[in-house]
Write a protein that binds this DNA or RNA. Structure first.
Lengths: 223, 223
DNA sequence: CTCCAATCTGAACAGTGTTGAGATGCGTGC
DNA sequence: GCACGCATCTCAACACTGTTCAGATTGGAG
């Protein structure tokens, strides 16, 4: 469409589409702004009327994908197998959705998960992180996260899921059977949630002693 | 040293040093092979007698750093506070060392953790992953991972730690107080290990139903 | 129908990774 | 002590990149 026209119509999203396709074909960094422009049938400099720089384009693509992912996570929570209201099942579904996306679309996932798009403002809606937070709230209300355990629980669950997603997207971990990915993800979510729930009982023990890192910091600043 | 000499002496590691410094100064990707060569006082093409491409240089730097990190993790396990033989304490020390490194040297960490260096062969010794595995073995021998829980436990712990490290290195998560990082890391390790240890008792429940991902796969291949 | 502002083009700039032909000098064999 | 081979490095060039800017083109408002 729009072949031969001087004004393209919606060059902005056409460029985003081309960039996304190029990321899939040539890898996260194996493409150029000029290539994307050429694919859309437009001169390289045309892109600069829609994006301040190549990096801005990448960031925009990242935000678009992140919003799409947020919506997908939300939907897959609803479609969770078993009783729909089991908060743990929903979190497992969220995790599997997140991880399997990064495995099915690794190049794009690398681009997105590398950060930069997750800038503070950037009106990404729904942001994946917010979807996770909401599900954890649901679990807490159902009594799955007793006492003060809820606070900061996002970090723990998010780190575990994000870590698995990144390891898979970067190819640092491989599974032969695609079902193994789901099983592994389920295990990670279950383990993390169980560990969190159990936190209250073990809570007596305060973290004792400084870690090697804190030691280093203290030595450096003369503390 | 070696100023003005035609033959540099040890250009290979000099280039690695220059690249490492540039990564710290200008960010993970904000530097060029030419710049590194110039800094060493050598023509750009000289680098190609030591590295097949820029990417090879990056990978070599990555491997060098990974080996250094493995050694650091190993040492910080020994220097764990409290009783030196407590396997959980050792694992917490390992985690704090790993995470704090990625926070203290984020640009280099991004380069390394992005993968590619962790190729199957690449004689990285000691590989950080192997150090973790060894510590988990130690924990299992001490009875901390009952029954079949040990199998695949690396994935869970590694994912959680890696996730936290990557989130911090990419700036997606920030902590004001540097002590908070250690506390958060300790929480992640504790939670994960507790969750794993508890796995045996919950083990009756088999993973029920397919996730949305497996559903998609099944639909795609007509299963 | 005219004109404006948004949009796109074309040519140019500095800088990039990479290559190949030739200069240089270290270490080895005599 | 000396010549020579070969690893090492230089120089010049290639195609390509992101980016800029003056000017051509056009859809839509008045």
């Amino acid at each position: 469409m729009a072949k031969g026209r001087y004004h393209h119509g919606d060059l902005r999203s056409a460029l985003l589409d081309a960039a996304e396709a190029l990321v899939r074909e040539r890898g996260t960094d194996g493409w150029s702004l000029r290539e994307a422009s050429a694919r859309v049938g437009v001169s390289p400099s045309a892109a600069y009327h829609h994006f301040a720089s190549r990096d801005t384009l990448v960031r925009a693509l990242s935000e678009r994908t992140l919003a799409w992912l947020g919506e997908r996570l939300r939907q897959d929570c609803e479609r969770a197998p078993g009783q729909r209201d089991d908060p743990q099942r929903r979190l497992i579904a969220l995790g599997c959705s997140y991880v399997s996306w990064s495995l099915d679309d690794p190049a794009v996932a690398r681009l997105v998960l590398r950060g930069g798009a997750t800038a503070p403002d950037s009106a990404i809606s729904p942001h994946p992180h917010d979807v996770l937070t909401a599900e954890l709230d649901r679990l807490a209300e159902a009594g799955g996260l007793p006492g003060p355990t809820r606070e900061g629980a996002e970090f723990v669950v998010w780190a575990a899921l994000h870590g698995l997603a990144v390891l898979l997207a970067d190819g640092l971990v491989r599974f032969d059977d695609p079902r193994a990915v789901d099983l592994q993800t389920e295990r990670v979510v279950r383990t993390t949630l169980n560990g969190l729930a159990q936190e209250a009982s073990h809570a007596a023990g305060r973290p004792a002693g400084r870690s090697a890192h804190t030691e280093r910091l203290a030595r450096r600043s003369g503390g």
